[in-house]
Design a protein around this nucleic acid. Structure first.
Lengths: 334, 334
DNA sequence: TTGAAAGCGATACCAA
DNA sequence: TTGGTATCGCTTTCAA
């Protein structure tokens, strides 16, 4: 059987309330008594019963993260960062990969102090029961009842296009996943479309290349397809890290030199962007910032400093590396 | 404040022990009383306090899985399967991506009933303290104190080579990651070497191609490298799913027809194997079986049916699909 | 069929 | 400095 503070008290010849104090390093206990108790605790292999502690303290010091779609590379870096942020605050993080409902159930059982919800599609139907656990979600803002940390994807695409226009580009193709299941991807697409319009750039089907997937290979294949057409863009925007990697690989295979022959700009600001064959200029909110904001908002909610920040939209920034160049004017004017 | 069984008892005009029984659907409570209590509980938005339940029942019905290296695609399918197995038994699973030590700490806090440890390198230093939580690990057997579920990787490679030999192949190349950090990969390598020896097949450096990585691209590059040599293997063994995907892509790009020109066999038995451009013949322990065995062993430990099964080595099976063919004898004899 | 009461393991307050 | 005791919310005998 587990040893309890009572066992220790008995052996030490003191009351168990004294043991409790000693174990919590209370200044109210004489040094010698404390030492005796601590040694004894170690001897007996004492381990605190967290259920009992939680019962009285009403805190577990753990945060739950719901991540129903485990099989996605991109967020895994975010999850790692969030984990770090949470650790910094003396809390721990546990993950559940079940459906939202059952995850919520487990987390209640585990008595987590707060919940972060990662959802690709729809967190529209979560019922935020009144006395429930503090919860924030990361995703496209749709719900007004729970705080959402979000990225301004449309603005990201606007900034990307704007940057390319500054460099003289007018023939810009967007390669991304247009499937309506992922709101984030759709936002990027819309943002690109709007930006092209805003800059009065003509578009046709060659400007919108649908990868119908988010993997590297999807980007690769889509790029090959684009290259086989008569349209010759001077710049390509890749909608995600993986897709951009595929774009670069396809271009190099076709002997395009980046950025001399073609400029490429990718979405996302994960460190790996710099480790591609060509250091990729990218647009996006730094992953650390997203992690920080999510965790910060959750803790504000836990400490209920204020619940006045329902939706937080993070602004993307441009990260110049070396995959974009000025359009050579000789080509520019016919 | 949260509503408790006492609140319900008061409103219902019964004792709180009756409420407890009703909530647990005890047959000792009259139907009408039960119904009244249940309705009232719903009305008041009653949620059980799990810490209190655990304190008395000494069970949390949750299993913890420690997975320090989140960024690996392959195991993520295994994790999903394990999660399913655990759910079947009425338990839940939570994940921790922290270091082993801190994960152990969180799981004690969360009062999990059992722990599964996924470790790539060394679970040699875990101290299995006497009164601790039941624990099994998935990995290469090294430790005698805690049960390990493992795969016979050497045998897998033996069976792969054996199968190819049956088809008449003698020039077989192994493409895999030789880095010593991952014991699993090393085992495959050794298994291949031993098998070639066992069948008296000559080997040189062209038979062992080091990808120095486990991604698709690593396999792709390694294959290209092999193809540029004078050695013309008739069969290739890919050490992992991702690597095999890269192999296939490289071969197709170089206009090899699989399996007419070259046979390919991959390691791993995840369902995706069939979804590659060419349905890939593969060797490995079905991922479901691994998941089942891990969970089963853990529950035996939890219920301490017997602790007599310290190490379990699963036997790989061959899965014929359509990436291997008989060597045409005309080529065979010089 | 229901109620009273003990106890799970720890914290915290008030007395001594 | 220490000890006694109430309490957290629930399960589980044992009586009624």
């Amino acid at each position: 059987m587990m040893t309890t503070i009572k066992d220790i008290a008995q052996r030490a010849g003191v009351s168990y309330s004294t043991v409790s104090k000693a174990l919590n390093n209370s200044p109210l206990v004489k040094k010698e008594t404390k030492e005796k108790i601590l040694t004894l605790a170690k001897e007996l292999g004492y381990e605190p019963n967290y259920a009992a502690q939680q019962l009285v303290s009403k805190q577990s010091k753990v945060i739950g993260l719901i991540w129903p779609t485990l099989e996605r590379m991109a967020p895994s870096i975010l999850v790692t960062k969030i984990n770090e942020e949470i650790s910094k605050r003396g809390y721990s993080m546990i993950l559940s990969i079940n459906s939202i409902d059952s995850s919520l159930e487990v987390f209640k059982r585990s008595q987590v102090d707060g919940i972060i919800l990662f959802d690709e599609e729809s967190h529209k139907m979560i019922d935020p029961s009144p006395h429930s656990i503090p919860l924030v979600t990361y995703g496209v803002s749709t719900n007004k009842t729970i705080p959402v940390i979000d990225v301004n994807y449309q603005d990201a695409m606007f900034k990307a296009v704007s940057y390319l226009v500054t460099l003289g580009h007018t023939k810009i193709s967007f390669i991304g996943d247009f499937s309506p299941i992922d709101d984030r991807q759709v936002e990027k697409y819309i943002g690109f479309e709007k930006a092209m319009e805003a800059f009065n750039l003509q578009t046709n089907s060659y400007n919108f290349i649908n990868t119908a997937g988010l993997t590297w290979y999807d980007g690769y294949v889509a790029t090959k397809r684009l290259l086989n057409t008569s349209y010759q863009p001077t710049a390509i925007i890749g909608a995600s890290y993986d897709i951009s990697a595929g774009i670069i690989r396809a271009l190099r295979e076709s002997n395009f030199i980046i950025p001399k022959d073609l400029s490429v700009i990718g979405y996302d600001n994960i460190p790996q962007m710099a480790n591609l064959e060509i250091p990729l200029t990218s647009i996006g909110v730094p992953i650390e910032e997203i992690a920080k904001k999510i965790v910060q908002t959750l803790f504000e909610l836990i400490n209920s400093l204020d619940i006045l920040t329902p939706n937080i939209i993070l602004e993307p920034v441009l990260n110049e590396r070396s995959s974009c160049a000025q359009v050579v004017s000789a080509y520019q004017d016919k």
